[in-house]
Design a binder for these strands. Sequence first.
DNA 1: GATGAATGAGAATTCATTCAT
DNA 2: CATGAATGAATTCTCATTCAT
Lengths: 215, 215, 215, 215
Amino acid sequence: MFNLFSPAMAKKKQPARKAPQQARAQVTVDAILEATVLVLDREGLDAATTTRIAEVAGVSVGSLYQYFAHRDAILTALQEREFEHTMAMMQEVLADGNLGRSPRDIVTAVVRGLAALYARSPGLHRVLTIEGLRVSAAPRVQAFDARVVDIIRHFLAATQAPLRRENVEAAAFVAFQSVRATMLATLLERPAGLSAEDLTQELVDLVLRYLVRDS
Amino acid sequence: MFNLFSPAMAKKKQPARKAPQQARAQVTVDAILEATVLVLDREGLDAATTTRIAEVAGVSVGSLYQYFAHRDAILTALQEREFEHTMAMMQEVLADGNLGRSPRDIVTAVVRGLAALYARSPGLHRVLTIEGLRVSAAPRVQAFDARVVDIIRHFLAATQAPLRRENVEAAAFVAFQSVRATMLATLLERPAGLSAEDLTQELVDLVLRYLVRDS
Amino acid sequence: MFNLFSPAMAKKKQPARKAPQQARAQVTVDAILEATVLVLDREGLDAATTTRIAEVAGVSVGSLYQYFAHRDAILTALQEREFEHTMAMMQEVLADGNLGRSPRDIVTAVVRGLAALYARSPGLHRVLTIEGLRVSAAPRVQAFDARVVDIIRHFLAATQAPLRRENVEAAAFVAFQSVRATMLATLLERPAGLSAEDLTQELVDLVLRYLVRDS
Amino acid sequence: MFNLFSPAMAKKKQPARKAPQQARAQVTVDAILEATVLVLDREGLDAATTTRIAEVAGVSVGSLYQYFAHRDAILTALQEREFEHTMAMMQEVLADGNLGRSPRDIVTAVVRGLAALYARSPGLHRVLTIEGLRVSAAPRVQAFDARVVDIIRHFLAATQAPLRRENVEAAAFVAFQSVRATMLATLLERPAGLSAEDLTQELVDLVLRYLVRDS
DNA sequence: GATGAATGAGAATTCATTCAT
DNA sequence: CATGAATGAATTCTCATTCAT
């Protein structure tokens, strides 16, 4: 059974803005988040001023600050949202019900799942990666990484596959970082002669041989 | 014979700054670069304003702009410098003279070399990674990546070791990205129970099993 | 029917500023323009920094930039405003309804009208002339000159007075430039023994004898 | 007999730099002035920084400041030089020896002379006009204008031609300003259908009819 | 609540001028 | 004298955040 960890919500300075209680409020919050994704993806980080985001979201800056204490809070929210998407995907793939599947199938599913998340808006992930590298974001990123490692470790502990690693936690960490970074780099650089499918195969092989004996 | 250096890219906007002609000038340029490293490492990217850098370097802002067309040019110079360090290290390790060594020794040397470079100033590499993720830096980063891939590919082509990969270029890319990203993440997160030596072993294993048969 | 206004030119660089939507905004814009006139008139072009203008206008620099894309845009706006004043004056004097008046009356009215405009703030016109001499202002100035020439030409074509010139367009241009420049020079130099009224008489004579036979 | 007026040299703040006594020094001063003309003409006022001027002149900024107390002194020197050129031209044309020529010939010669001076480097005159409109330049400009008016007045007093004006000083002033400004405007705007020769004819007519009876 | 005008601290950059070599 | 590296005051402009309407 998984332990579903703690939400890891990050506080900043100012008083946390009211959690949207009415439907209209939630709509506004979503509009702001979507607008931010749009702007980041199409116009880049520098263009993502609060004014521009509000404009694209179809609200006033004032309203924006009604729901987000400061500009950074928007990025943080977006980051958390992507974290949750990733977690959800991994939890689904690495669920106990899938313990019987072949290691290759499992790893392939994870890599494909991750690829799908990144492909949806590469520009956003570029920015979120930048954001995640800022010192201030470190705790949040670490908490997320820990959760991911936990899930992987849990699955590895339960699987029947013959594992090669001794330090399972380290292995989970290394595997995850490798897949994530290579995927992002590919998305951003599009190296010649490396299709999405090629990349998937390479990464699956990378991880599989690293983790599983006789693979 | 290899090291097929690509043009190295450079130009940004308009004003190319004068290259230092007097000895005094070179001292100033170096002071600025060192100051920037210091500030980035200790105070982070946002603190690295031109004023602060000049202050720490012990020169005036004017001097700074005498040698760097704009703030970004300093970061770019730093990035290029690190690129060259990395290239130099890899060229040394992957030199033809080392073709006889065992694959494990070679990979270990590369991983250790990279680790040493990163460990010297993690904060700087954090920032340089951020910098490398900016859209404007893409061409420079790609050029560097291409050079690295070239060196690795060249070595793989010359080695006697039984390779497992078919797409050697893709493999070089994947291996390099994986090592680099994991290394950075470890430096920044310092995950519990993962010493520097542990990490090296994990990465060597990761790469070795991915690339070389019977390893 | 005339006043064949030409497009009036506008755009400079990138960011078109928001047009004032609330009443409060219009007040601010006006305050900035008036402050600029004041500063130019009393302290000269060099003193007219954005900070100083904002200060005199009683607003923040931020507000200034909310409505003017850059410092030059303020001067341009002022220039256009003076252009419009001049046009309005000339259209009134050279209206079809005045075709019956004597040439001397008409010319006198134009010269007096121009004198009145210049006398209101000589320092401003000094600066606007400087501004008009900048290469970047050339298109705007030419467009204005063309409009003025058009009005004059149109009137000359309609008048009963016996004209002396063959190239009417050239004549309109020469006459206008002469009056304008002499007027400005007088305002700035105040040559001894040349009262405003004297000047008017001289200019009227200059233009009249140039343009009209038997005058 | 003319009275050749006083030199009207303008002092600024700092100690006047040494007057070039050796040949080499004069060469340097000339090089700087020529470089300034070149830069102003080709690159405009904003590009005319002391560094750029020194560069084009082939000397160091340091040397530049050896001969000119401040940047403005260069422009002032250039202005004085043009003033002298203009004076020389007018003195030649309006010399007593030419008193016998027809008014039209005289005026034509002056207009042509002025045109030639302007045509040599329009960009320079654009800038010098701007410079002359600055408050600080007013005394110098007035002194020059007074000298010009004096020459013209002197000639008018001596000529046999039947003059139409009563206020001869005012007339000289008006005539000169008109010709000068129209000429500059034409050079800068190049209005369609107005050749250099056309312009000369128009201006000659303008002045002649204004000044001389039965012309 | 929503709006968007106003704010102003702070950042980048320029360039006339100085002065050690 | 010449050189050109160094200086730093001054200027423009941005953008997160606030608050009166």
